[in-house]
Nucleic acid binder design. Structure first.
Length: 886
RNA sequence: GGGCACUUGGCUCAGCUGGGAGAGCACUUCCUUGACGUGGAAGGGGUCAGGGGUUCGAGUCCCUUAGUGCCCACCA
């Protein structure tokens, strides 16, 4: 037998265990048609990424589910891979180039992409290695990358197909422009923040009249592109101005004054300038009234040639200059502080500029329908259910998805423009001949696709689509997705409609949402705050098992959680507890193992713990099946620590050291069996420590547990013939007696070394028999020098202390180790407690409405309690009386 | 402007479809018993945010008030 160290040291074992799992190919899903599949696709981390707590939580949950399913005999596939993270990666590479003094554009597309691939080779594996440290049992042999040949092919296929169906189109619309990243971004990537700003009230003179119309704006610089002024048709203030013309100050452009109900009478002056090129609302208005769209900004946030003398200024400089000029002209009426919502780029944080540009879009209205239906009708279950509302939040207001990005790192749009006639051909490959003019040279569209365009295909592209692979057939649709609720819009929704559109089927049955992992103060972990806790540091200090257990307990799905070092330590201690309990069992188990004993030789206590373990199996399995991961973990913790370690192991010691071989054998068998069940149930949560122990235990039990690794061993199954209700009841009675004795002794500060006689008095033959049977451990746990079990109080000193149980009384002779006042105090407390209980029960039982409406079983239950409490109360009272007499 | 969540012992949080308030950490007292002091035994501590309602019975369902956090929204 391998000797286990006195304390569990995760660092010593984790790496070699993991390496062995890899070597044995245990993570590999065989794609075996005869087995039922269970599939999880891993949300692909960015290749630029470093493991953070969010990943750790996410992947721990996925690993727990997939390990359990694997043990249950499923063909369990956890499909891993990485995302090329178009913009995130490109930004990093640009930064790296900048340090070398190189500009992206000088380098050119081809050389830039070379650098990007180099970067991918260098850093792409980093996060995967970090996931491995966590114990992740993903099928690494099947690792995919969104820019793999196969996945790129999927992207091309989808793009062309959708274009041909009219679901993808090229259009000129107002889009979100990031002046720093120099690319469009989708609506989902714009973060609206309430930002303090100003309302500038400006007078626009009316043409040919000696008066003005006062408009209010938060962005004076955009006035350079104004092409109208709009008021509400019912606004009495401006009735006579509708249809007239205003003169745009500085620029002297003539602006029609139009009326539209879009205007809110309450806001500002009720008159608004219209800048169709730089505001989404104005854009709509512009379309409605055929207004001119005058773009006045350059892509990098400066004023362009349409800005006249302001050309070349930044937008902010221009704002100041214009305000100053208006003031000098006497047209600035007033400036008010005003808080308004400003869109920021979620990645770089700078202000998004609405611009009109020609871009590629995915038409959403039809595409989204099956995705809405699937969630509404429960074909795809979101956990927790309240996420349905969040989901709807987005699906109900969906607009066409802008998918083109002015970036190089990503899937290049497969549109080709004929050099001679400009005709556009969308095809998987560059055409040989222009169908329009017969030209033979083409330019490919410069833009790339939004990163999420390829991740939307992830559940089937990773399985080989568009090839009809066996994997695709076997593993799709997948069963579960586990991800953060923050990417519902980016990813979850898009996978759902993509699944229906391209596969004709949902991508997964259920989505389990995780919350955010916050720091100990409840703050979001972020780079800028520097409060992030590195999961690898936690693993290094306390082990992966402790981290995993911490992340999945004390938290329910979709709720944020706080990280706490205290909890990690507590869970490390739990790992150590199992380690030591196992060490104890291994020390006692004979080399040749233990045969299954006859049922008669099992002690009540053995049956009790076997029965408890059996019920644990049921409750853990049920909870895991419901994805109540944390609940199952709590139960395991309680069972292993309280019932197995604190009770059963202590109960069993006298038998292990005693002479009765049959009893000893039964105890050892029970210990071995229950430990094995516990380890297996715990394995998905704490894979390393359970595997380490299993490695020592399994050789002693190879007949029943042939698998050389716990990872591939069979998941325990609840067996109703193993429910020993009677033995549970009997054992629990003795446990209650032991607690009572400990309570009395502790209440009087009796040192453990001081043993005393213990009398068990009961008129019930059956109860006396229970104590006779449990005598072996009752004596040790109750610190008894001698245990007397009798029918009456004969021979017991009058002043003996007593503990009342339901059908028996325990007496401990007072002798000289006792403080009478303390005992009276204790009994008084007990009396008060019983009085309370009796009052409650009486209240219920005397309530006619309760008697008439509550279920029969509940009423009977309460009646039984009443009898029990009444008996105990009588005992306490007589005990008190006799103590007071002495 | 909509919507969602949270408010339970000193701290961090569990508590599923309503039926005697729980855990971890912290705290008090005791214990070097032959698995573990990363341990064991016993214990203190909560009007489950406030108010109202439904019910025989509410931390759990409904309404409402307050505080906190988050999401969505094209009010210039």
């Amino acid at each position: 037998m391998k000797e286990l160290a006195k304390t569990y040291n995760p660092k010593e074992i984790e790496q070699s265990i993991y390496d062995n799992w890899l070597k044995q190919k245990y993570f590999h899903a065989s794609c075996d048609e005869s087995k039922k599949p269970f599939t999880i696709v891993m949300p692909p981390p960015n290749i630029t990424g470093q493991l953070h707590m969010g990943h750790a939580l996410n992947n721990t949950l996925q690993d727990i589910v997939i390990r359990q399913k694997r043990m249950q005999g499923y063909d369990a596939l956890w499909q891993p891979g990485c995302d090329h993270a178009s913009i995130a990666t490109e930004v990093k590479i640009i930064e790296a180039l900048k340090k070398e003094g190189i500009d992206k554009r000088d380098l050119g597309r081809e050389k830039f992409l070379e650098r990007a691939w180099q970067w991918k080779e260098e850093y792409g594996g980093r996060i995967v290695n970090q996931l491995k440290k966590l114990g992740s049992s993903a099928d690494w042999d099947r690792e995919r990358f969104t820019m793999d040949e196969g996945l790129s092919d999927a992207v091309l296929q989808v793009f062309v197909k959708m274009y041909e169906k009219g679901l993808i189109y090229k259009g000129t619309k107002i889009i979100n422009w990031c002046p720093k990243c120099l690319t469009t971004v989708s609506d989902a990537e714009v973060e609206h923040k309430d930002t303090p700003g100003h309302f500038w009230h400006i007078n626009y003179p009316i043409k040919g009249e000696d008066r003005c119309i006062e408009i209010a704006t938060t962005r004076p610089e955009t006035m350079l592109g104004d092409t109208a002024v709009v008021v509400h048709p019912d606004d009495e203030r401006y009735q006579d101005l509708i249809g007239k013309t205003a003169i745009l100050p500085i620029v002297n452009r003539e602006l029609p004054i139009i009326a539209d109900t879009y205007i809110d009478l309450e806001v500002g002056t009720g008159a608004m300038k219209v800048t169709p090129a730089h505001d989404p609302n104005d854009f709509e208005l512009g379309k409605r009234y055929q207004l001119e769209e005058i773009c006045v900004f350059t892509d990098d946030g400066h004023i362009n040639e349409n800005g006249g003398k302001y050309e070349g200024m930044t937008t902010l400089e221009c704002r100041e200059a214009i305000v100053k000029e208006l003031e000098e002209m006497g047209l600035l009426v007033k400036v008010k502080a005003y808080e308004h919502s400003v869109g920021h780029h979620d990645r770089c944080g700078c202000i998004i500029e609405p611009m009109i540009k020609q871009q590629w879009f995915v038409k959403m209205d039809e595409l989204i329908k099956p995705a809405i239906k699937a969630v509404d009708e429960g074909e795809i279950r979101l956990i927790p259910a309240r996420m349905n509302k969040l989901y709807h939040n987005w699906t109900d207001n969906i607009r066409d998805w802008c998918i083109s990005r002015q970036l190089w790192w990503g899937h290049r749009i497969p549109a080709y423009y004929c050099d001679s006639c400009g005709h556009m051909t969308v095809a998987r490959e560059c055409p040989d001949v222009c169908p329009e003019c017969g030209g033979t040279s083409f330019q490919q569209d410069e833009d790339c696709l939004d990163t999420w365009f390829s991740s939307a295909l992830w559940p089937f592209s990773t399985l080989g689509w568009p090839e009809q692979t066996p994997e695709l057939k076997h593993f799709y649709p997948t069963n579960l997705l586990i991800t953060g609720y923050d990417i519902i819009f980016f990813w979850v929704i898009r996978m759902i409609f993509s699944g229906y559109e391209h596969m004709g089927e949902k991508p997964f049955d259920a989505v389990l949402f995780t919350g955010l992992v916050r720091d100990e103060l409840g703050r979001k972990m972020s780079k800028s705050l520097g409060n992030g806790i590195d999961p690898l540091e936690v693993i290094d200090k306390y082990g992966a098992d402790a981290l995993r257990f911490t992340l999945v307990t004390g938290n329910s799905p979709g709720n944020d959680m706080r990280f706490s070092w205290d909890r990690v330590e507590a869970n490390r201690n739990f790992a150590n507890k199992i380690w030591n309990a196992s060490r104890f069992i291994l020390m006692n188990l004979p080399e040749e193992g233990v045969k299954t004993p006859k049922e008669e030789s099992l002690h009540d206590a053995d049956k009790w713990i076997l029965s408890r373990a059996n019920k644990l199996t049921r409750v853990v399995t049920e909870n895991m099946d419901k994805y109540e991961i944390g609940m199952a973990a709590d139960r395991l913790y309680e069972f292993i620590w309280d019932e197995l370690c604190d009770w059963y192991i202590e109960m069993v010691k006298p038998r292990l050291y005693g002479e009765d071989e049959e009893s000893k054998h039964a105890a050892l068998y029970t210990l071995r069996t229950v430990l094995m069940t516990s380890l297996k149930l715990l394995h998905p949560y704490m894979p390393f420590v359970t595997e380490a122990i299993y490695g020592s235990l399994q050789p002693l039990a190879a007949d029943l547990y042939p698998e050389e690794s716990i990872m591939i061993s069979a998941w325990p199954v609840y067996d109703e013939t193993m429910d020993y209700e009677e033995a549970e009841r009997r054992t629990q009675m003795i446990m209650e007696a032991v607690r009572g004795i400990r309570n009395v002794r502790s209440g009087m500060n009796v040192p453990l070394s001081r043993k005393s006689k213990v009398y068990v008095v009961s008129e019930s033959e059956e109860i006396r028999e229970i104590f006779e049977h449990g005598h072996v451990f009752f004596a040790t746990l109750g610190k008894a020098s001698e245990v007397m079990i009798q029918k009456n109080t004969e021979g017991i000193a009058k002043d003996a202390l007593s503990v009342q149980l339901a059908g028996a009384t325990i007496y401990i002779p007072l002798e000289d180790l006792v403080d009478i006042d303390k005992e009276i105090e204790r009994l008084e407390k007990e009396k008060i407690r019983l009085e309370g209980e009796l009052k409650r029960v009486d209240g219920m039982l005397s309530n006619e409405r309760f008697l008439s409406k509550a279920p029969e079983s509940k009423i009977r239950e309460e009646q039984e309690k009443k009898e029990k409490y009444a008996g105990m109360m009588a005992q306490v009272e007589s005990q008190l009386a006799s103590l007071r007499r002495s």
